[in-house]
Design a binder for these strands. Structure first.
Lengths: 213, 213
DNA sequence: TTAGTATACGGAGGGTGCCTCCGTTTAGCA
DNA sequence: TGCTAAACGGAGGCACCCTCCGTATACTAA
């Protein structure tokens, strides 16, 4: 709850640079920041096209830079994987903010689920690499988890207050329900889609009929 | 249930060789079979010592043979991983047979759990590699699962008949309960041990007290 | 505007790991 | 006891991760 930036509003480039590096250092040079972003985007594209085992050379090429540049920004493979994953998590949080501000409560839930499905797709291609990354940096996992949980809370709580979603369920419940469906490798994409729709239906306030004895 | 060999009794070496190769071919030469076994054993040792990323060279060295010999037996890395895993599953099934024949029903359950914990440890170190292997050969997963399930059935059914284990639970229920505890990477070994003991306690016939309304 | 410098860039090359190839050795058979 | 099909060993090819350092360039101060 404490590492979040305050909003999704427009930030100056210098601010953006500060967020990537530590706060005390001078901002990155413009070309460096541009290349860093190119690299993360390229990595995501190449990973999703070629799988998690894609080579560093291929990623550098896709970004239009040399491997030296890649390694300047990301000293080793896992650092790059980590950056891609963190960017995805961050974007999901941004999405939660945005749909919360721009859409009605229920459509916001639907849109957020959609975004989560996309997020889960890249997480799935990086599953093995992330497994290693989480082992080396346990706080990466916990920070990501916290950010995800608060994203779900944001969207679900709002929908609960508006009466669109049943109130016997929390954001983190929903996350626990949805995460395995999206991440489990033995569930095909279209099956996952069906399951998600089913979960959505069960979430609606008027779906709460079953009462345990 | 159809791929099982009929028993754990003493088989001739020629029979053993036939089981490894296809049934139609001539038996392997004695040195080849010896080296094959050395390699699987060495692979298991090296993997458990160095992790699933251990090199083929290291394994060949541990077995005391050249890499050429390794690759003659296992054309690529995954084939070796698969062989180690299949051997483990097979040994677990042999153990189920053995404890079923040699021990009283309840001690047999305990001994089998112990063996399963050992099995799960190597499965855990090979998790990433197995993930790939399962992707390439879906029948490997299903055959292993079937063999595991029948091992659990064997031990649990016998204990149920003797009255040592509650009869509202099946072997495959127990497997579903135990497997994640042993395999989940975020559960430490000693925690897994505690959880297993707890499951064991819950399995006993005299533990069945809670009745759902 | 310009010169100086800290910073970033690129890619050749070192190191390692998977796998192949082929000359040498040996088990099994007549 | 030879003959031959089968197995052995390890040098070397190839691909990938990462390092190093000479070159290029964005920022800064005069």
């Amino acid at each position: 709850m404490s590492t979040q930036t305050e909003s999704t509003g427009d930030r100056t480039e210098a601010q953006a640079a500060h967020e990537i590096e530590g706060a005390g250092e001078r901002p990155m040079r413009a070309d460096a920041r541009r290349n860093r972003e190119l690299l993360v985007t390229a990595a995501r594209n190449v990973f999703s096209a070629q799988g998690g085992a894609a080579s560093m050379e291929a990623i550098a090429k896709e970004a239009g830079v040399g491997v030296g540049t890649l390694y300047r920004h990301f000293p080793n493979r896992l650092d790059l994987v980590e950056a891609v994953y963190q960017t995805d998590v961050q974007e999901l949080w941004d999405t939660a903010q945005r749909v919360g501000a721009e859409l009605e409560p229920w459509p916001a839930v639907e849109a957020f689920f959609d975004a989560f499905l996309r997020y889960a797709r890249t997480k799935k291609t990086l599953l093995d690499e992330l497994h290693l990354a989480f082992e080396k940096k346990p706080d990466l996992r916990s920070r990501a988890r916290a950010l995800l949980e608060s994203s779900f809370d944001l969207v679900i709580d709002r929908a609960k207050q508006s009466g669109a979603v049943r109130d016997d369920i929390s954001g983190s419940d929903v996350m626990q329900l949805v995460s395995p469906v999206c991440t489990n490798a033995s569930i095909e994409p279209e099956q996952a889609g069906r399951l998600l729709r089913m979960i959505l239906d069960g979430l609606r306030a008027d779906a709460a009929r079953t009462v345990l004895a």
